[in-house]
């Protein structure tokens, strides 16, 4: 983003974003969860795995802000540490699926011969329901944090690939790309400098939504007991164990659920705001 020509557009983009209260709300929520995840050991005096059997299933009070679980572990502490995992998975999936999707989409959109095969592969991958494909991949790869990120990245990469392919098809035909080709600019340079740099915005919008979907999917996998190993606290596993105590200790599932909802909502608010800001046609309508 070093070239000066794109500066005015980006400046106005930032302005449009800040003008939207919903986007600010989303960013604030994300900042709070992000800060809590990073500063976890500073915020809470407890260890996420520290048990206190005498205090098991204690309702929220001054010491245990959000109560304790079946082993007397502090829910607030576990919530923060679980947030680390959930945000890591969401962010990791957003980045890795973008990388895979960009490679696929550019290949399909730019090289006509590859377009048919790449499009069919995208179609085929989209035919699998996301949770079902993710479960199967995790079953095959094994349930570790990295494998869950990898599995979900494979699940969501086709969404990025579709966006990149569509943008490539349009930009490829523009005069400046033709000029670059005529000048003998290397193909990879055209792909990165002329094509990719001009579709950064739609990719970021899509990646933001994938961040949200991946957090929901990870929670779903953990809830089903086929995600990250159950010893690692995630919001999904916290709800899964909490359901057995729903009658006596409702707080065990209440707070992880609220956390997932808030994060996903915040990401959707930001994603929506970005999309509207980038598409002047829509922003006028709203």
């Amino acid at each position: 983003m070093a070239d000066t020509t794109s500066m005015p557009m980006e400046a106005s983009l930032a302005k449009v974003l800040v003008q939207r209260r919903a986007v600010i709300l989303g960013l604030v929520i994300l900042a709070v969860f992000g800060a809590a995840a990073i500063l976890a050991p500073v915020i809470t005096p407890f260890e996420p795995a520290a048990m206190s059997v005498r205090n098991r299933l204690t309702a929220p009070n001054a010491t245990w802000w959000l109560g304790t679980d079946e082993f007397g572990r502090d829910i607030f502490t576990r919530l923060i540490y679980a947030g680390r995992v959930s945000l890591l998975v969401g962010g990791g999936v957003a980045i890795i699926s973008s990388l895979i999707g960009i490679a696929l989409g550019l290949a399909g959109g730019f090289f006509r011969r590859l377009d048919g095969p790449v499009s069919r592969v995208i179609d085929a991958m989209m035919a699998f329901p996301d949770i079902l494909l993710a479960i199967s991949l995790v079953a095959a790869l094994g349930g570790s944090l990295i494998n869950v990120v990898l599995a979900l990245s494979i699940v969501y990469a086709p969404r990025i690939a579709r966006v990149v392919r569509a943008s490539t098809l349009v930009i490829r035909e523009l005069a400046y790309v033709e000029a670059a080709r005529a000048l003998g600019v290397a193909t990879w340079r055209i792909l990165v400098h002329h094509l990719l740099r001009n579709m950064v915005s739609p990719i970021i919008v899509q990646a933001t939504f994938i961040f949200a979907y991946a957090m929901l999917a990870e929670a779903g996998l953990s809830f089903l007991g086929v995600g990250i190993d159950p010893e690692t606290p995630t919001w999904g596993t916290m709800i899964n164990t909490g359901r057995q105590y729903i009658d006596t200790a409702g707080w065990m599932i209440l707070f992880p659920g609220i956390s997932i909802t808030l994060c996903v909502l915040a990401l959707q608010l930001v994603g929506d705001g970005l999309r509207d800001a980038l598409d002047p046609r829509i922003s006028k309508e709203l």
Binding site: I246, G257, T261, Q268
Partner: peptide, 22 residues
């Protein structure tokens, strides 16, 4: 609608199960 799309369905399910069934 945006809120509904953000809530994990299994969580809604557990809450509904608890308050509308159990």
């Amino acid at each position: 609608a945006m809120l509904a799309a953000s809530v994990p369905s299994f969580w809604t399910g557990l809450l509904f199960q608890q308050y509308l069934a159990t």
